[in-house]
Design a protein around this nucleic acid. Sequence first.
DNA 1: GACTTATACC
Length: 745
Amino acid sequence: MRLMTYNSIYQKIKISGNGCILFSSDRALNDQSRRLESMTVHRPCANGFALLIHSMPSPLFQPAQAFVSRRNSLDLLKRFTETRNLNLGKAINAHLIRMFQLDLIQANYLINLYVKCGQLHLARRLFDIMPERNNVSGNALMAGYFHAGFPLEALDVFKSMDLSQLSCGPNEYMLTTLLASCAEVRALEEGQQCHEYALKSGLVSHSYVRNALLHMYSKCSGMEDALQVFRTIPSFDIFAFNSIINGFLEHGQLNYAMEVVSGMVKEVAWWDHVSYVAVLGLCADSKDLNLGRQIHSQILRRGVEFSVFVGSAIVDMYGKWGDVQSSRCAFDGLLNKNVVSWTAVMAICTQNGCFEEALKLFLEMEVVGFRPNEFTYAVALNACAGLSALKNGDALNAHAEISGYKAHLTVGNALINMYSKSGSIDDAKRVFTSMPHHDIISWNSIITAYSHHGLANEALEAFHKMLKEEVPTYVTFIGVLSACGHLGLVDEGFYYLNHLMREVGIRPGVEHYTCIIGMLCRAGLLDEADRFMRYTCVDWDIVAWRTLLSACQVHRNYGLGQKVGEHILKLDPDDVGTNILLSNMYAKAHRWDGVVNIRKLMRERDIKKEPGVSWIQVRNETHVFASEDKKHPWMSQINEKVAELIAQIKLIGYVPNIGSVLHDVEDEQKEEYLRYHSEKLAIAFGLICTPPGAPIHVMKNLRMCDDCHIATKLISVVTNRKIIVRDANRFHCFESGICSCDDYW
DNA sequence: GACTTATACC
């Protein structure tokens, strides 16, 4: 009877091609056999094995004789690896150890199983206690580390291995993994050693090894080395072509990438979805709309595997062309979405200024159950930065902290940017100091942040600290030179421009030269700035000229201002900013004929001044105020507050700047107009809605007007509040009657 | 016997 049952179980499992396990306890046998008999045919092996193995620790079920044939154990391990069945894999592991059956091959199978189930620590533990290891054991673990994003650990495993254990040197598998890890950590020297070994051992003729070599060189060194390997490939190899295109793409050598693609066109039957991803990326970067659309339709026509990779690449391509609509459309049509495609579409929205849309997508993504990753947080924070949405940014900060992503560099960097653009320089600084590591982006972000907030000394101090750790970049010097401008450090500015930049090999661009113009202007050296612009061989843009014009307005140098203004209007007669600046300048000089003239020209050319709008976030809601806006539900309270504030600040010297009002009306009415400037309304609303002492953050789409600037300084005194206004140009931090811009903006 | 290469979001 007992034997029959054994046999029937054995046969059943054997017939289905699985394992064979025999136990001796009567009860166990009866129980198990009954359960085994009733098993469904679909997963007899897994269930049967689980029942038997799981019963083993119980004293009732002591196996008198448990047996898994070696062949069967390997079959089971293979199956459990394919189905990622960690528990049964562990059970076999326990069983084999108990039976003193665990040999090298089985252990290698197990390492692979643990690796594939994402249990690197288990793989590692097994690896460490193995009495004997070979190429396969090492490589299974190394590949595990590599794929999990720990290439350094993969290299460490290799270094820690006693190579005499390998009967021969590393085989083609291990060499491939080694090269891939070197590529990832940009270890050129080690990669070259691998190359030498590959040549000596003859493994270089192996296509995997060759492709890994090619990829390693394209990552760690120039494309020349990669091409040398590429030329040794005897026949068309899609892997190699894909790697070469991606290499050129990463090095920004788009023309070469395009050449390779042209060469691939006749082999188009062999393209795989990675090729499509690469070519779509090329079309995105080179703005080749024609080819991009062709490729997109070809993908649809040929029914190319529409992986998340291909989908995200299409979303990204349309977005990089600035076509948010098509990008969004492509995204909505994706059948396979993942965090990356969601993040891609959010990034596209953010890059094209659709910040609210990006934040909406972030919420939607969570609703449908995708967890954001570090890139998602970075993108969402950038969207907040674009909106100066401090509250949302704060919430995201907490969110990222809870989910453990705050420790990532990209998130830290995005937080610095968000806090800085939202007017909270203290928080930006706090994030920067609390970060365990800084990269060049972190440094650039904090330097630029200090600069924008007028904290030029801090910016330069950070810059000098940075020089001890990192090599400055193009962006670094924009922050540094604008800091020099704030401090009036003309000599230092020129030193950085002419010497330090050359020393580190950065060619100054128009942004740097514009900082120099700003610096000269700020120091009152308007004629020098004008001369510098006329005699330096720089492709000056409108922004640069407007910097000079704006300075003429501030310094009341109307003669030069008129000359510069006319020059700009020759370049672009429709430039709104210039027209407004000129008209303000004429108004300041009481040159009403000039004002009327500009307004007439603007009317004729149908140039409309963007209406002034200010906004403020209170308790997660954004309240928008336009000038002379009467729509806000709290308007009567706001008006009352404005009147109260004006009365208070008049006592300490406020005189309404009615000279700046262009309307052809009585002075009293002009004063009335000034009261309804959008920033005053937003500030008053902020004061009503926030507790005493809380800082007020207001954003404005245009440059803050002179009258509001004076008024806000005084309001910061009478209310004892810090008021931070981000206008079109910069931040103004009003505190105790002083503004961080030193009245120059 | 088992283990290996390239791709999308910052």
